[in-house]
Nucleic acid binder design. Sequence first.
DNA 1: GTGCCATTGTACCGATCGGTCTACCGGTAC
DNA 2: GTACCGGTAGACCGATCGGTACAATGGCAC
Lengths: 171, 171
Amino acid sequence: MAVLRQQGYDGASLSELSRATGLGKSSLYHHFPDGKDDMVGAVLAHLEQTLEADLFAPLRGDGPPAARLRAMNRTLDAFYDHGQDACLLANLGIGESSRPFHPRIRQIFARWIEALAAPLRAAGLSPSVARTRAEDAIARIQGAVVLARSLQDSTVFARTLRALPTELLRR
Amino acid sequence: MAVLRQQGYDGASLSELSRATGLGKSSLYHHFPDGKDDMVGAVLAHLEQTLEADLFAPLRGDGPPAARLRAMNRTLDAFYDHGQDACLLANLGIGESSRPFHPRIRQIFARWIEALAAPLRAAGLSPSVARTRAEDAIARIQGAVVLARSLQDSTVFARTLRALPTELLRR
DNA sequence: GTGCCATTGTACCGATCGGTCTACCGGTAC
DNA sequence: GTACCGGTAGACCGATCGGTACAATGGCAC
C-alpha cells in the first residue's frame, strides 16, 4: 500500500513491490495470480476494510455528531500523517478511469460520502444538504492533501481538518 | 501535456509521447536533450505561461473582485473540461516529491495562491485571511477534480466552482 | 519415514522502458 | 552545384518491465 500510494500504479513496479513486501516474484504471483491488478485489488480491499473500521463505522456511530466528526479528523490526521502522505485513492483515481480497479475506488469514495452524511443528518440537516456537504468535505480533504504535498507545507491540511467539524454542522 | 495529465509521469512513456506529438524519438531528444524530465519541464513552463495569461493575470486585474473570480471560474471550467479532465499539477505533485520538476509544481501553486489572494484583498479582506482563503479555495478545486474523476460525476466540480465567488468574498 | 502440497528462490521469457546512433532529408549560403 | 546544418525517421542499446517455469523448501498427515 505504501508503494502504491507514493509511486502510483505505473510507478509501483513489481520489483519495488517485491522489495517492499520482502516476497519474491513467485510468491507474489502465488498469492495474486492475476498479477499487479490483483495486488492492487487486494490493497484496495484491505484499505476499504481499514476505512470501514476506523473511519466509516465511527462516523455512523450513535454518539454526538460533533464527536463523530472529531473522530474522523483523528483518523485522517494519522492516516495522511498530518498531510505529508499521499492519498492512495486520489493517486489511483486521478489517472485513467478505465482501469479495472477504478470501480472500487469509486465505491470507497461513495461509502465515505454516505458515512459522512450520517452524522450531518443526525444533526438535523436535510438528507440532500447532508450529502452535498459530505461530498464537499471529502473534496476539501483530498485537495488539502494534494496541495500540502505539492507545497510541502502541511498547514493547509491541518487548517482544513480543524475547520471541518464546525463548518459541516453549521445551520 | 494531455498525455502527462492523464497518464502521470511514469505512465507517460516516450513512445506514447512520440505518438501524441507526431514526432519520432530522435526529434523529441533533439528538442529536449535531457530526456523525459526535460519534456516535463517544457510542459510545465508552457502550462505556467498559459495559466499566467488566462488565470493569474485576470485575477490580478483591476476589475471588481467578484468579476475577477468569475473569470477564474470560466477559465477553470474550460481547463478541466467541467471536471472531467485530470489536473496536471495534481498528478505530478501527488507523487514522489523528490522529482526534479517538483519545485516548479510548487511555484505554480504558489503563484496561483498569490494571484487569487489579490482580489480578496481588493475586496477588503486582510492579507492573511485573503491568503488562507485562497489556499483553501485552490485545495477545494483540486479536491473537486479528484473526486469528480473518481466518482465519474462532475456535479461536485460544478457545485464547487459555483459556490466559490460568494464564499470567498464573504465577510 | 514418506507423500503431499502450499510456498518460495531463481532463472528466464518476450515486450517495453528511457535513451543513443546513424543515415537521411530539405532548406539556405555561397 | 555543393557544402552545410537544423530537423527527422527508425534501427538499435542495455535495463527493466510484467509475468512464467521449475526446481527446491518446509511443514503437516499418516
